[in-house]
Design a binder for these strands. Structure first.
Lengths: 174, 174
DNA sequence: CATACGTTCGAACGTTCGTTCGAATTATAG
DNA sequence: CTATAATTCGAACGAACGTTCGAACGTATG
């Protein structure tokens, strides 16, 4: 709270005139963040029908958001369970919706190709891959979000031993 | 500190008789944890030469440790950067060694099969997958560590579209 | 017995943190 | 202008935290 006060130039007491508590502020940030990601994702998914491409879009959307909001997401990941029961359940609901969307994409691919893998583990592993980015991502080393998303897509979809088949207009330089 | 005091039954001041500060305690926990993981890993790797199997051993070792020390690792992941310069560099060194080991395993596989993928991204994605487990793992839903490690190995190595080829004595029921 | 040492503790210190209070300042309405 | 409401702030409160201090206790040694 004192950091925000210093950064915004508003006094500590002035902050509390607009937001009743630190917890509510954290809640609003989390709600806004997840809602934005889901909204953007839904918009992008409307233009694509191919299951594999839809998964790649999911990854790209998530990675892009994490890369452009790195410090914010860091705080967010660390304050994961610091909300009291009332507020935390609403956030949990939004997270669940996001999880369900990704689970649906996985099931579509699984169904289309007659594959046999655990969709839950696949989704949560993918989440882990992406959510961990904030601990290591360096723009100068790892390139832009698109390149990273493509590499992660290759791993999740084809694994490292089946190489990254160039998808669509991708140039595959790595 | 007061939580530890309560949990151990020793007074707060008594704690400081054995450990000079909270930071040093955190440092010792981190050092012991990472050293143990690396020591166990090296022992297991000595028995196997096939690059793919070595990666699967790496995953199994990491997952097993995370699953059996779930609450501890949770704290550890959250206190990632809370050490002052002197202590944090030593931990960073151990982490770097661990990273290098995994990077070497990836490069071996890459070399053996003439593959073309970004080893850095592969390693860090794998770390993300495993380190994220503590946020969702449920023994009753996700089975034991071995099953989870096998699924994650399948994803990283073969991806979800190339299915999990049964390796060794695995029974592949999912 | 006395001495020294390791161990344990209650109590407190100093700081940080989230929050509140009352007043001062500014904008808005009649 | 005056009155009412919205905005902003300095100062402080109360709790939590990491840490320290001095004393009490037990044990081993001479």
């Amino acid at each position: 709270m004192r950091d925000i006060s210093r950064a915004t130039g508003m006094s500590l007491a002035g902050l509390y005139h607009y937001c009743e508590s630190k917890e509510r502020l954290l809640f609003l940030i989390q709600k806004h963040t997840f809602s934005t990601i889901i909204k953007d994702l839904k918009a992008r998914l409307e233009t694509v029908t191919e299951p594999e491409d839809r998964i790649r879009i999911f990854i790209l959307n998530h990675v892009q958001y994490f890369v452009s909001n790195q410090p914010g997401l860091k705080v967010l990941a660390h304050e994961d369970e610091s909300l009291k029961h009332g507020l935390s359940t609403e956030i949990a609901g939004i997270k669940r919706e996001y999880y369900r969307i990704c689970l649906g994409l996985m099931q579509d691919l699984r169904c289309q190709r007659g594959l046999d893998f655990n969709t839950r583990t696949a989704v949560l592993s993918l989440f882990g891959m992406i959510n961990w980015i904030y601990t290591w991502y360096n723009p100068r080393v790892d390139g832009h979000a698109g390149a990273l998303a493509e590499q992660m897509g290759n791993i999740v979809l084809n694994g490292i031993v089946h190489g990254g088949k160039p998808r669509k207009k991708s140039t595959r330089k790595q």
